[in-house]
C-alpha cells in the first residue's frame, strides 16, 4: 500500500507538472497508477526524470492520447517510426530526406539526434540545443517509449499537453486578438536580427511556423518575465498586445 501510494504520488506530480486540464479523467489516472506498479523502481525514476527532460520539447511537441501535430509532429509511437513520415506534420526537407534514406527512430538514433540535433541532421529545424547529459537522454527515451503501442511493459501515461500554453495569466481577450500580418512583417524585422528567416535553429531557436496561440503565450511569458532570457524580455517589453498578435500571425503565415 505504501508502495502504491508512492507511485500515485509520483504520477500526481507528473500530472501537475504537465498542467493537465481540470477535467482530465481520473480513470486514466488510476489505471496509470496500477500499471505503473509493475515497473521496476529504477525504471519509474527514469521515466519520471524523462518527464522533466521532456519539458524542453513541449514548446513544439505533444505526446499522449489527444496529442496532435503542433510546431513539430506528435510523438506517439515514435519508436519504430520512419523519420519525417507523419502526414500533415511540418518537417524540414532534411528530415524528410533522412526518412527517405531509411532513418528510423529507435533508442540509438534518438539518442544521437537528441544529443546534438544539427550534427545528426545538419539542416533540421528542430529548435533544441541538444541534451548533453547521457542519463537525461536515456530518461527522455524511456519516457517517449512509454507512448509506443509496442511497449507492453510500459503503461500509457497521460497526455503531456499544453505546457507553454497553460498560462492562466493570459486573458482570453488577448488570445483572441486577430493580428495584422502586414504589421507583423514589419515588426518581424527586429526578430530576424537573431532568428533565422528560414526557420532553422542555429544557436537561436527557429520561430517560423509557430501556431499563433503558442507564439502569443510565449511572448507574454517573456513580457511578464515568467521566461527568463533578458534579450527576449526586452523585446517583448516593447511590444503591445496587438503587436504580439501581429507577429504571431505573420510568423504562422510564413511557415505555411
Amino acid at each position: 500500500m505504501i508502495c502504491s501510494r508512492r507511485n500515485a504520488l509520483i504520477f500526481s506530480c507528473v500530472l501537475i507538472a504537465f498542467g493537465l486540464p481540470a477535467g482530465f479523467s481520473t480513470d486514466a489516472h488510476s489505471q496509470t497508477t496500477q500499471a505503473s506498479e509493475a515497473l521496476s523502481e529504477q525504471h519509474k525514476l527514469l521515466v519520471t526524470r524523462g518527464t522533466e527532460v521532456f519539458q524542453r520539447c513541449t514548446a513544439c511537441h505533444r505526446i499522449g492520447p489527444d496529442a496532435e501535430n503542433r510546431i513539430g509532429p506528435h510523438l506517439n509511437n515514435l519508436i519504430g517510426r520512419t523519420a519525417g513520415s507523419i502526414a500533415g506534420a511540418r518537417y524540414s526537407d532534411a528530415m524528410k530526406k533522412a526518412g527517405q534514406d531509411g532513418l528510423k527512430w529507435d533508442a540509438n538514433t534518438l539518442d544521437a539526434f537528441v544529443a546534438d540535433p544539427t550534427s545528426f541532421i545538419e539542416d533540421t529545424t528542430m529548435g533544441l540545443d541538444g541534451v548533453e547529459d547521457a542519463e537525461d537522454r536515456k530518461a527522455l527515451i524511456a519516457y517517449l517509449s512509454a507512448f509506443a503501442t509496442g511497449s507492453s511493459n510500459i503503461p500509457e501515461t497521460p497526455a503531456a499537453r499544453g505546457l507553454p500554453s497553460a498560462d492562466p495569466g493570459i486573458p482570453a481577450e488577448i488570445l483572441a486578438i486577430k493580428g495584422d500580418p502586414e504589421y507583423g512583417e514589419y515588426l518581424s524585422s527586429e526578430c530576424l536580427t537573431c532568428h533565422q528567416s528560414s526557420g532553422s535553429n542555429r544557436g537561436i531557436p527557429g520561430i517560423v511556423g509557430w501556431p499563433v496561440e503558442d507564439f502569443v503565450v510565449v511572448m507574454h511569458a517573456y513580457k511578464s518575465r515568467k521566461r527568463d532570457n533578458p534579450v527576449m524580455q526586452m523585446m517583448a517589453s516593447q511590444l503591445g498586445n496587438d503587436e504580439i498578435a501581429a507577429l504571431a500571425a505573420y510568423f504562422q503565415q510564413k511557415g505555411q
Binding site: 540545443d129 524585422s189 530576424l192 536580427t193 537573431c194 532568428h195 533565422q196 528567416s197 535553429n201 542555429r202 544557436g203 537561436i204 532570457n229 534579450v231
Partner: peptide, 13 residues
C-alpha cells in the same frame, strides 16, 4: 551560444 546564433542571424539579415 546565443551570440553565435545572433551572428548567423544578423549576417543573413
Amino acid at each position: 551560444e546565443e551570440s553565435v546564433g545572433w551572428y548567423a542571424g544578423i549576417a543573413n539579415d
